[in-house]
Design a protein around this nucleic acid. Structure first.
Length: 298
DNA sequence: GTATCTGACCTGGTCAGGGA
DNA sequence: TCCCTGACCAGGTCAGATAC
């Protein structure tokens, strides 16, 4: 391919300077070298690009076509070069996050809003990890972070702690269980339990609380949206086991209260999984630090 | 078969001289 | 003064020869 970026830069610079000497200076070349470059293109395409007899230099139709091309292509090239430098410096890139808990949106979205202000050149995408196993995709580099409550030992991956949480049974302030210091598993036998629409085996309230006690709620109702879940609880349509940060969310109704599950409570730790090689990446570690600070701001 | 060396060739640059 | 062009140079590429 005869036409190269340097040729477009040459044509662009000469057209802007109207003078071969000045253009050569700007390009850190001699006028002769610049003349050779133009001559090479002219010889290859068997046409002229500039009217030499004009002072200042004038563009022929062919020259104007190449100038049009240069004006479209060069900004793209320069932007991409800038982006590559930013990526190399760890100041730009992509942050694909997969979350394994619906309730995480309540802290993730305000955290990302703050993150975007600090790292405007990072392209962010979020995907729910309920419908697939995100860890193999994380290992392959298709995603960058997995927010999870269940760390596993997998070579090449690190699970970094974000913050502790407690699962609470959320009910309205008129609920019959509202005066109990904590909730026993048996207390849920007569309750409608509202959950997110995921497999039972992935819900902590069943895995760690109800199934070990061999207790089945009177009814299980699945709801996709956290706000809808909160509305149903507020009007007495059921209860739900939810992380404590949801009760602090500004959108949560004041009439909702949370009670510990069991005398000791059901405690957990939220983690961010990433590839070992990405731990030091500035824009990834910055997100993890922001997420860690989420609870401290309360 | 692979790695290294060598020479020919190509590309893109400078320098110097000349023409408009 | 500005640009073109021929001579020449430096560095990179490629293909063939040679050694292991």
């Amino acid at each position: 391919m005869i036409l190269e970026i340097r040729h477009l830069r040459a044509i662009y610079t000469i057209a802007r300077s109207k003078n071969l000497n000045q253009a050569a200076q700007k390009l850190h070349l001699t006028p002769s070298a610049l003349s050779h470059q133009i001559k090479t293109i002219e010889n290859h395409f068997e046409t002229t690009l500039f009217f030499r007899q004009h002072k200042p230099l004038g563009l022929t139709d062919a020259g104007q076509r190449l100038l049009d091309l240069a004006e479209r292509v060069l900004p793209l090239v320069e932007n991409t070069e800038h982006e590559l430098k930013q990526i190399a410096n760890g100041k730009a890139g992509r942050l694909f996050i997969t979350i394994e808990c619906h309730a995480c949106f309540e802290w993730l979205l305000p955290t990302l809003e703050q993150y975007r202000k600090q790292w405007p050149d990072i392209h962010i995408d979020i995907k729910l990890g309920m419908s697939f196993n995100p860890l193999p995709a994380l290992s392959r580099g298709e995603i960058d972070l997995v927010i999870s409550t269940d760390p596993v030992d997998k070579p090449g991956l690190s699970f970094l702690t974000l913050f502790p949480y407690q699962a609470l049974l959320v009910m309205n302030d008129q609920h019959p269980l509202k005066d109990k210091a904590f909730i026993n598993a048996e207390d849920l036998a007569e309750q409608t339990l509202i959950t997110y629409p995921v497999e039972r085996s992935r819900l902590d309230v069943f895995r760690h609380y109800l199934d070990p006690a061999n207790v089945e709620p009177a009814q299980v109702r699945q709801v996709e949206l956290t706000t809808m879940m909160m509305q149903l609880i507020a009007v007495g349509q059921g209860v739900a086991a939810l992380p404590d940060w949801l009760l602090d969310a500004p959108t949560t109704a004041q009439s909702l209260i949370g009670k510990p599950l069991g005398a000791k409570g059901m405690h957990g730790m939220l983690h961010a999984a990433c590839r070992d090689q990405d731990i030091e990446t500035p824009y990834i570690s910055a997100f993890i630090e922001l997420a860690r600070g989420f609870k401290n701001k309360k």
